Each structure stands twice: as structure tokens, then as C-alpha cells.
Amino acid sequence: MTDNKDTLATTPLHALHVELGGRMVPFAGYDMPVQYPDGIMSEHLHCRSAAGLFDVSHMGQVRVKGKDVRQAVETLLPADLVNSEAGRMHYSFLLNDKGGILDDLMVTPFEDHVFMVLNAACKQSDIAHLKARLPAGCEVIEEDDKALLALQGPEAANVLSALAPDVAEMRFMTMRDLDIAGVPCRISRSGYTGEDGYEISVPGAQADAFARKLLADARVKPIGLGARDSLRLEAGLCLYGHDIDETTTPIEAALTWAVAKSRREAGGFPGDSIILKQIAEKTPQRRVGLIGEGRAPVREGAELVNDAGEVIGKVTSGSYGPSAEAPVAMGYLPRELSEPGTKVKALVRGRERPMTVAKMPFVEHRYYRG
């Protein structure tokens, strides 16, 4: 899909974004709001202090059904679905035969199907990959009649439990089906901001009314793509196509924790020999967090150099962190330079900017674990 306005797809909330003054931009083939009149900084801080509502309907929602569906899906990714409780979400990856990440995703097994949420830019290639690699008895169903909303922030639980009291008891990374204000929803306690919150799948035809009901609460403001990016960066969360891609393994990306312990012994997923070897022997390079000085951000693509001016790595995501109150970034460095406290420099318009390797997240996660 091109970025011509006439060919961009729209979500069921498009008219609402325009009505709210959203500044619309092309993103992953969709016309999406990058910010609203209050601006990115205000939206970011509001999500950290109250509750923000995000439209993430451009992402793919997929059900996989069929005989032994958990075992079948497990052959394509390194999560342990077979031994998982129904409704337990897993952050995982579709992998190529070299262990490279085709996409990072959320995957949740239920009694009779496996549910996936896919990145917008990858969803069609992901669906093709699933159909090509899964056994003939498996059916891949794209739920393109659904919208997906994310309600994030310390007030998210109070806002949503006023409409559906049962959501208050849900724990981080669990998913269930509930009626909320008369709307059939598939809801997870999850998100990509580092805050407590929920992602809510709703029928597209009811999404506008549902979003307006949430926005009627004074604690909730609409949040665009700009603040979504700065929030996830402060939380140390990867953006596909930037921090991770087909040339990056989960181990290089410091995501070893997402390879289930049971799968580290048995393997049985694409690229398993490479990934298991990397776990045992470590990798030459590693994703790290970086904190700069002052307020000017160090953006994606900036080269990282040592004291001799030699290029040693590259920034893959970078912005000013409104909550961290510093420029924050992620990038790749040689493993021997990946320890927190290590000093490096970033080249920005030909000038060297000091940066320090730092632990992630840059802002503490506030997930609700019960």
C-alpha cells in the first residue's frame, strides 16, 4: 500500500480522530493520528499520570483454529503454548530459518484456538507465512472486522472497571472475553507503554461509540503515534523494523527472556540451532539502552563511536524522554561495551554527543501483577 492519501486505509475511528483535531499522517498503509492539539509532550505525560486512549486498529488480529493448534503454532515461534493456561498472553516472534525476527507479536492460546496480534506493517506477510507453514488442518482467520483500542495509564483500571468491574481483577498478560457496556469485547491487561492498562478488541461497527464512552471520562485523553513511540521507548520496548528485524535474533536484541525455558532445551522452532548456540555462547553485539545529556534527542540512524572516533554501533530508536527528562535511545554495541555505565559518543550532524549505556526500562514499568 502506498502513502498516497487516496489509497491509505482507515480504521473505524478515523472520523473521530479528525473530529478531535488529530494531525493525520501515513503509517503502515493507514491514515493515523500522530498527535492531537495538546501536542506529543502533553499526551505522553497525561498517559503517565492518568489514562490515554490509543487507536491500534491498524494492527492485525488473527485466530488460528484446527487440530492440535497449540502444537502447530509452536513450530513457528519460541513460546511454550502447549503448557500454557488458556488466556495467558505471550510476547513472542515469528522467526526465519536463521533465527531472524520476521515479526514480534502477542500470542494467546485458548481452548479451541490461538489468538495473535500482529504488527500493522507485517500483518499480511505474517498471515501468508502462517498459511504457508502451518499444517493443512489449521485455518488462519483474519478478524478484519474488529477495532483495537489501548487504554493505558495509572487510571486505566479505574476508568474501565467503572464500566466492567471484572477487569479490575485481571493480571498483566492475561486475556478474556467480556461484555463491556453492552459491547462484546476481547480484552487483555497489556499494552506497549510500560504503564498498567488494557487492549480491547471490539466490533468495528461499535468502536466509535465505545471510544466516545471512554473519552467521556475526564481522566482519559486521546493519544497519537508520537507519544505512543516516546512512551514505548522510555519503557525499553522494541519497535519492529527499527530495533529488531529479519537480520536480528532475539538474543542479539536482549530478548532472551521471551524464549521459553522449555523451548531452550527442546528447540523445535525456526533457527533454533542458531538461537540456542547464541544463548550458550553469547553474541558479539547486543541491544542496549543509552542516555544522553541536555534535551536534544539522538535520533535513529546516528552512528556510535569510541574515543578514537571509530564507529562501534548505531542508534535504532531515539527521542527526548519526557518522563525520563533526558534524551533516551536504543541501539546496538559490541557485547564488551554493553555494560551499564559505559561511555560512548553519538555522531549528530557531524558533532560528537556523549551518551552512557543504561539499564532499561528508562522509566519503571507499572504493570499490574496482582
Rank of each mutant, 00 (worst) to 15 (best):
M330L: 11
P340N: 04
P297V: 00
L333H: 05
V363L: 11
P322I: 08
F362C: 09
K345T: 08
N306C: 06
A296G: 06
M360C: 08
A296S: 14
G301Q: 07
P334C: 10
R351N: 09
T316D: 04
G350C: 11
E352C: 04
E300M: 15
Y332E: 03
L347V: 14
R349V: 14
K343P: 04
Y367L: 02
V311W: 03
G321D: 03
M355P: 03
G318R: 03
T316V: 10
P327D: 09
A358I: 12
P361F: 03
E336K: 14
Y332A: 03
L304V: 05
P340E: 04
G331C: 12
E336L: 13
V363I: 07
I312R: 05
E303F: 05
V315I: 15
M355S: 00
R351S: 09
L337C: 00
E352P: 13
T342Q: 10
Y368L: 15
K359L: 07
R351F: 13
S323K: 10
T356E: 14
V315M: 08
V315H: 02
D307M: 10
V305A: 02
G350D: 13
E352D: 04
V311L: 08
T356Y: 12
A358P: 01
A358M: 10
E325G: 04
D307G: 07
T342N: 02
S338F: 06
T342K: 11
S317G: 11
T356W: 00
G331I: 04
P354V: 03
R335D: 12
T356K: 11
V305L: 01
E364K: 11
P322V: 06
A358D: 02
G318M: 00
K359Q: 15
N306Y: 00
E310S: 15
G350S: 14
R366S: 09
A358R: 14
K314A: 09
G318T: 03
M330T: 15
V344G: 09
L337G: 03
N306E: 08
